[in-house]
Amino acid sequence: MIILHIIPSVNPVSGGPIEGIFTSAPILRQQGCDREILSLDMPDDPWVKSCPVPVYPMGVSNLKYQSWRNKIPWLRHGYSPEFSPWLKENIKRYDAIIINGLWNFTSFAARGALAETGARYFVYTHGMLDPYFNRVSPLKALFKQLLWWVSEGRLVNNATAVMFVSEEERALAPKSFWPYRAKSRVVPYGIVDAPGDAKAQVKMFRAACPGVADRRYILFLSRIHPKKGCDLLVEAFAKIAAKDPDLDLVIAGPDSVGSVAKLRETAARLGVASRIHWPGMLKGDLKWGAFHAAEAFVLPSHQENFGIVVAEALACRKPVLTTFRVATWREVAEYHAGFIENDDLNGITRLLDQFVSLSAQEKREMSARARNAYVDKFDIATMAPQLIEAFRTS
C-alpha cells in the first residue's frame, strides 16, 4: 500500500503533523505501507534534502514570487502552478491520498484536482476545525466561512473519510462552519517508542544546556506560541518557585512568532529569570535527553487536537501536566498519569503546585502509570495495523 501525504511543508519547525508522519513511517513500512509527500517546499530547502520520507517539493523558486509572497495574503498561504498538474498526473500511483490540514493552498488545490479524478482521499484536520480559533479571530472566521463554501467545505464533506485523532476533536468539528456533512472516523494516532540510550541522551542534553547543569526541572517542549500558554506557565512558575527552590523550568522549542523576548522580560520582572532556561528547538537525542532528564512535562495549551509531545513524554515515563483544551487529556486522566486543569493562570498554577506537592514515592508511581498510558494508548507498533486497515476499509 502506498499513501501520498499532502502537507504545506516538511520543515520540522512546522509542528506535530509532519513529526507524526516522520516518526511513524518506519513502523508503517514494516507493516507494508509506504508513504510519500507532496509539499510546497523549495527543492533546495535543507529540510527537503534531509527528509526521511520521499518528498515532491512544488514550491515556486522565482525571486519575484518570493518578494511578493510577504505582501499578498493569498501568496502567504502558498501557491504553485505545478501542484495540481502533478497531482492529477500521479494520482493513480497511490492507494490513498491524505490531506493534512486546511486553510492553505494545498487543500484548495487538492480539492480541485481530486474532484476531477474521483480518487479516494482522506482529510486530517489537525484541530483546524476547533471553534477555539473562531473565538480568538472572529474576522478570520468570517473569511474562513466564505472559503468553506467555496473550497474547504467541499473538500471535507466529499472526503472518503475525515480522520480525527480523538473523540473530543470529532465532537468539536461540526460546531465551526456550515454546512458540515463529513463522514468522520476516529483513528489511532501513535508514535514510536523513545529511541536510543537514555543515559547518553541525558548527558548530551545537559552538556548542550549548561545553564540547567544538574538541576531538577519541569519541561515544556513545543512551539513557543501564544496558543501554547507559555505566558501563563512563566507566571505560574513564579508563583510556586519558592515552594521548591531546587526546581527549574525548561521552555524548549522554536520561537514561532517572536514571543521569547517578552516572556524573558516577564520572568525577570517576577524574579525567576535565572531558573527558566531557553535552549531553543531540540531534535533527536537532545530532545529525548530533555524528556528523560525532566521530572515532569507541562503543556498549558489553550488548544491542542492531539499533542504528540504528550505521547512522547508518556513514553519517557514523565507525568504530564496539561489542560482540558488538550484533546488527549482523557488518556492522561484515565491512567492518573498527571494532572489536568483549566487553561488559565489559576489552573496552570494548580498544575505545578499539585506536582511539587507530591512525595518522591508518589512521583515514581505516577511515572510508572505514564509509561502504561503510552503502551496502551499511543504505541504506534501496536496501532499501525488498525491505522492501515482504516485507510483500506473506509
Rank of each mutant, 00 (worst) to 15 (best):
Y335S: 01
H292G: 05
Q303P: 03
G284P: 04
H336F: 11
F297Q: 02
W288H: 14
A333Y: 10
D285A: 15
V310D: 08
K318E: 01
V326F: 01
R275Q: 06
P279Q: 03
E295D: 12
A315C: 02
R317M: 09
D344N: 13
N342V: 14
H277C: 00
L299K: 09
F324Q: 11
M281N: 11
F291V: 00
S301G: 05
F297Y: 08
V332I: 14
F324P: 08
A313D: 08
E312G: 12
L286E: 04
P319R: 05
E295P: 08
V320K: 03
E334Q: 15
P319A: 11
G307K: 02
A315K: 08
D343K: 09
A311T: 13
I308H: 03
T322H: 11
V298F: 01
V320A: 14
A327V: 01
N305T: 11
T322L: 14
H302A: 11
H302E: 09
W278D: 09
T328N: 11
W329F: 15
V320Y: 05
V309L: 08
Y335I: 00
C316K: 00
E334N: 14
R275Y: 00
T322A: 12
G307A: 04
A293M: 04
L321V: 06
G338S: 07
H302G: 04
P300M: 07
M281C: 02
F339N: 06
A315S: 13
P300A: 00
V298R: 04
K287F: 09
A294T: 04
E312A: 12
I276N: 04
